[in-house]
Design a protein around this nucleic acid. Structure first.
Lengths: 138, 138
DNA sequence: ACCTTAAATAATAATAATTATTAATTAGAT
DNA sequence: ATCTAATTAATAATTATTATTATTTAAGGT
């Protein structure tokens, strides 16, 4: 597995680090720190939660994963291709939504913004997933 | 000042509640809970921080203000017109950006999403503000 | 294969953010 | 003016995150 050759400085390929990255790459969603902690425990039963925090920060710093803006707790994802998010206002569930057209449109808008050097953009869609809609209607 | 007639249930127009709402409506930005707490203190010196939390939650619930998705701490805004955010990756500063075209474009994209009933949408632009760019370049 | 060393880890303490509890107060209805 | 449910202040409890430190380990040089 590669993916850590990001700078001249020595980066250690520890088991913990690699398992966390692997978990994120395989996880279909936007896990919280606790999700990651629980997820890698089966492989590394003695891992410390601080190690999970450290590595998530580290991997995000190296741009191997991304932190997602959410209310409340931190969430992470390994999908580095620009994409958008659909967020359920009821249960908080987050789904990825890819749309190159929208990305391009937004980047074009971004190019007209001054006072800021825009590097990236993403769009959130807020609504209610089928499950929660069913619940609401009774 | 009006703005609290949102449901049949009794809503009390307390000083604390009204000052918090006023502060948010006059504040030009995206204050944190602490910002709000400090901001209303000059008017209500004995206010409790729990009251600030309660009212921000309450006002967001009644859709008189909105919580902004951000990394780390909670932020709020009273600008209810759909708009977008420009976020500095260095200092975390958030600026509003209005673009009806982008909103319409996104809502049109949203109408094609299935499995979700989309109610609203907003776009984030990530980059570096002039101040931070100047710092980086030295 | 063995040393060396900076980096990473585990365990835990410390801090910060948020929520819950409860007795006292108060806005609005009667 | 009285009543009552909602709200508040104060504070305790909980949760999320960061800092500390002694120990362990990956990677590079010999």
């Amino acid at each position: 597995m590669d993916g850590l050759n990001t700078s001249a400085k020595t980066i250690k390929y520890t088991n913990q680090r690699m398992e966390i990255l692997k978990f994120l790459r395989e996880f279909n969603g936007h896990p919280t720190v606790d999700d990651v902690y629980e997820g890698v425990k089966c492989k590394l039963s003695r891992i410390s939660k601080a190690t999970v925090y450290n590595n998530l920060r580290f991997l995000a710093e190296k741009e191997l994963i991304k932190e997602v803006n959410t209310k409340g707790v931190s969430r992470f994802e390994a999908n580095l291709v620009t994409h958008h998010h659909i967020i359920c206002l009821e249960c908080g569930d987050i789904k990825d939504y890819e749309s190159e057209e929208l990305t391009e449109y937004s980047l074009n808008v971004a190019s007209k913004i001054d006072g800021f050097k825009i590097e990236s953009t993403d769009t959130n869609f807020y609504g209610y997933c089928n499950k929660c809609r069913r619940k609401q209607n009774g």
